[in-house]
């Protein structure tokens, strides 16, 4: 920087300009169509991933319940899993999974100490996510699914005190 200057503006070489042409690639519409098809092809795998994640959540919740000494650690692991479900559900047309995972994640990060009520809510969220998968509830307009999300949101709000 020059003496006395508060900042310096640098124009780095734009090496990407030579690599990206505005022509010759697929249109945005084609990209979206093809990506959606590719994600559709992953759909079955996704359902399996989430089922495995839910099995893990149930196991971790059991361990947390059985041994208060490991509860905090187990709940952190559950929070990580729900964070991932939150970030992927809607990509696979399961926005209600994202909503449920968001609700559970909020519970896990905002309540500092585990308690029976919290563990019960963990199970209820995992059960609700199981229902969404089992009934193959895609989109956000399913009445029962919406109701489950609303009820669990309210329960979490009550526990975290918002």
């Amino acid at each position: 920087m020059k003496p006395g200057a508060k900042f310096e503006v640098i124009n780095p070489p734009n090496s990407l300009a030579a690599k990206v042409s505005p022509h010759g690639g697929p249109s945005l519409e084609a990209v979206v169509r093809e990506a959606e098809q590719a994600l559709e092809d992953l759909q079955e795998s996704y359902q399996l991933w989430v089922r495995q994640d839910l099995d893990t959540i149930f196991r971790l919740a059991e361990e947390a319940e059985a041994d208060p000494g490991v509860a905090s650690n187990r709940l952190q692991e559950i929070a990580q899993i729900t964070h991932d479900i939150k970030g992927q559900g809607a990509t696979f047309e399961y926005p209600l999974l994202t909503h449920l995972a968001r609700s559970l994640h909020k519970l896990l990060v905002e309540v500092e100490r585990s308690n029976d009520q919290m563990l019960k809510l963990v199970r209820l969220h995992a059960d609700a996510m199981n229902v969404i998968l089992k009934e193959d509830v895609r989109g956000a307009s399913h009445q029962l699914g919406k109701h489950l999300v609303e009820m669990l949101n309210k329960a979490v709000d009550k526990v975290v005190g918002t």
């Binding site: 690639g25 697929p26 084609a30 990209v31 979206v32 169509r33 093809e34 990506a35 590719a38 994600l39 092809d41 992953l42 795998s45 996704y46 991933w49 991932d84 970030g87 992927q88 990509t91």
Partner: peptide, 15 residues
């Protein structure tokens, strides 16, 4: 998250 890798591989592949 390796699942995220698959998601991004699909999206980037379409591009």
């Amino acid at each position: 998250n390796v699942h995220m890798h698959q998601i991004l591989r699909s999206i980037l592949g379409a591009m």
